[in-house]
Design a protein around this nucleic acid. Structure first.
Lengths: 199, 199
DNA sequence: AGGTCATTGCACACTGCTGTGCAAGGGTGT
DNA sequence: ACACCCTTGCACAGCAGTGTGCAATGACCT
């Protein structure tokens, strides 16, 4: 994350650069201010306000892009005729490399802008809950919790592991996939098998 | 949570009253200020500072009491000769009625005072990680994740369910116990059985 | 060379929260 | 009645973050 002199960058890249940095900085410290983000982006605070009138705007755009990418991955992997647990394993495998980048979502949910963020995350929540419900109906997932709840738990488990795991260094895709499948009520053997065969 | 005139209360109860209210208020909004806490306690902000010089002091005392109660429950239930999964189920059963009250702990971990809080929570982390490790060694828990990590996940799962579940109203001890046991790698049948027989 | 425009570097006002000081009020126990 | 002290009410200083205004700089394009 080296910071080149601002002048050397293409002018219009600044906005996306700020977004990238903001995702990283806010992922590390959700209460980071515009100043912190600006500094991390190698830019003056005033410049950030030039692209994002308020901090809320920045957070919203950040969330939107994250939601977009995530739903895209799920839509790409999902298919009505596939087993829900296999789809879930694939989704985790695809998202894992990006999960650490998106760990900011965990913090955003319960934050100052919680209500607005919750609305933005709704599409992701819905598609995941739908997938889990399908799995429960077909019997591959357990019914110990409502689909809407257990999907959240399994989801946040993956992101928590991605967030902390990079620091620990000892966690990998397999562990995260297996754990989230266990949460969903998939038997250990099946979970291990599913986690082994994707990538 | 009705607020009687301050004069009617025993003088020295104010402190513990503030602590109770703070646990509740901070559980709902971790970024709540001294003013919010004071108002919820039916007291003036100045009075809170009379008992807790800084906000950090309040949070620390709050955490300490929570840690004390939790470790007490675990110590009471745990016994070296008992199966780790049965102990875990008992701990969850005992803590569930209080878990919603203690949900503030989830937020405190990753907060402004994160480092200090982490130290205070260390005893709880250790005893739980130890229990899980024992379970892994005896084969009742899975080895998909390191004990220190999976104990955290299972732990926060229970507290998350307790925090959200009260709002939903549809979640009970059984569901939380089963889910946390699943996270730990306990087979569904065994988890269901363990969750059924305690109370 | 000249115009455009993003960026910069101040300045400033505003807000919300923290922590403190101090005098007055009003129970409580003797 | 009296002293004690917790609580109250208000005032104040300080800090951190937000959002704005404006002139100056300098890169890029024509």
């Amino acid at each position: 994350m080296q910071v080149e002199p601002a002048r050397a960058r293409s002018v219009s890249d600044t906005r996306s650069r700020i977004l990238d940095v903001a995702r990283e900085v806010l992922g590390r410290d959700p209460s980071a201010g515009m100043g912190d983000i600006a500094a991390a982006a190698g830019v003056v605070r005033r410049t950030v306000y030039g692209h994002f009138p308020t901090r809320g705007d920045l957070v919203r755009d950040l969330t939107r892009s994250a939601v977009g990418e995530i739903t895209a991955v799920v839509a790409e992997v999902d298919a009505p005729d596939r087993d829900a647990d296999a789809v879930w394993a694939d989704v985790v495998a695809r998202l894992w490399p990006l999960a650490h980048r998106y760990r900011v979502l965990l913090a955003l949910r319960r934050g100052e802008h919680g209500d607005e963020i919750h609305v933005l995350l709704r599409p992701v929540d819905d598609v995941l809950a739908g997938l889990v419900r399908r799995g429960q109906d077909s019997g591959v997932f357990g019914r110990h919790l409502p689909a809407a709840v257990v999907s959240q738990i399994a989801w946040s488990t993956v992101f928590t592991l991605a967030g902390d795991g990079v620091a620990d260094g000892a966690l990998d895709v397999r562990a995260a996939t297996i754990t989230s499948l266990l949460v969903l009520g998939v038997p250990g053997g099946r979970a291990t098998a599913l986690a082994a065969q994707d990538g």
